[in-house]
Design a protein around this nucleic acid. Structure first.
Lengths: 181, 181
DNA sequence: GAATACATGTAAAATGTTACATGATTTT
DNA sequence: AAAATCATGTAACATTTTACATGTATTC
């Protein structure tokens, strides 16, 4: 699926592996992320399969850049993937819930410490959605001619915001329940 | 991390790979799941590392079972993992959001179809949390002497319920926003 | 002078998915 | 008669993470 994340970005504009990593980190990283090494190897694979092509861009006093461009075949494949509806819901992995599930044998204070720490982390993440992420989207939306795109980016941001609000509410309820026990 | 899911279950009682797959499917699968093949290979690895031991149980008119038991080393490792607080939040992958992010070029009707389909799926999942999952937990809680455990299982169930409610709300808002455009 | 940003890549290990293989018993 | 359940496992493949490797330029 990283394939389609990369094709999605390249469909906006040509980019190097380095660029793509930066782009993901500031935009999709909350629902789709990848390590630099995986991006480089996937790009190489996509080029072999004909979905992208690359050329070297020489730079003075900086390493050369390998810039990727989406091919027509890549565009067709991307659009096909986007158009085909998902027939299932995503199955998540949530380590905190796994730990909590098996934590009855622990001292409740240990569990509470964990939950309070998570509350702080999720509070920070919520703030980030409400400030940094929101700003980044608005910047992109105004600088380029991308109002249509920005509405959808904003929808994904709101998902993150709702998710964190829900998470914090649940943590508060769970902390209270364990405290009362 | 599957390691700790398996140790967690084996800490309650001995079980075969088959049993563990069934257990996960009815309990943790919404926040931790694994394929049968991965469970079998991980158990084998855990035995080599000394966290579990196994013996064959003969059965008439059914294939033999290889039953695993947690070792003291396994119990210590499990407890250590449970006690050590997570210092980060989980980074999810949510294919629907990735698709939505790049969907500005699509016909809005195609996007709406996708979102409505997801709404149905999440509605079903919500019902499942409210009925099947709730019943399973209550059954376990009453049949065995596991009230303490059941409270935490119930907390993880409530997370799932809250998550699905949030998801549906977000889908409704997003569907409306795209419809208005 | 140290840390960060720029920029690319490889190698190894871990994790996870899909497919194959077998075969009896029980339920529909 | 067909399908599902019980039960175990291997092999191949795909994905992801961690670590290694290099080197310049800019910023603190």
């Amino acid at each position: 699926m990283l394939k389609y994340a990369l094709l999605g970005f390249l469909n906006y504009q040509d980019a190097s592996g380095y660029d793509l990593k930066q782009l993901m980190d500031v935009s999709t990283s909350n629902f789709w992320h990848a390590k630099q090494s995986q991006i480089y190897t996937t790009l190489k694979k996509l080029e072999k399969e004909g979905f992208v092509i690359s050329h070297i861009e020489a730079q003075e006093s900086r390493p050369n850049r390998r810039v990727y461009e989406i091919t027509e075949s890549g565009q067709i494949d991307l659009k096909k993937w986007l158009s085909q509806p998902l027939m299932t819901i995503e199955s998540r992995k949530e380590t905190l819930l796994l730990k909590l599930f098996f934590s009855a044998q622990l001292d409740p204070q240990v569990v509470l410490t964990e939950l309070r720490l998570q509350r702080n982390l999720h509070q920070s993440q919520l703030k980030k959605y409400q400030t940094t992420t929101k700003d980044v989207i608005q910047q992109f939306a105004s600088s380029l001619d991308m109002q249509e795109d920005a509405r959808l980016w904003e929808a994904t941001r709101r998902f993150g915001e709702s998710y964190e609000e829900m998470y914090i509410r649940w943590l508060d309820e769970t902390i209270e329940e364990i405290s009362d026990a």
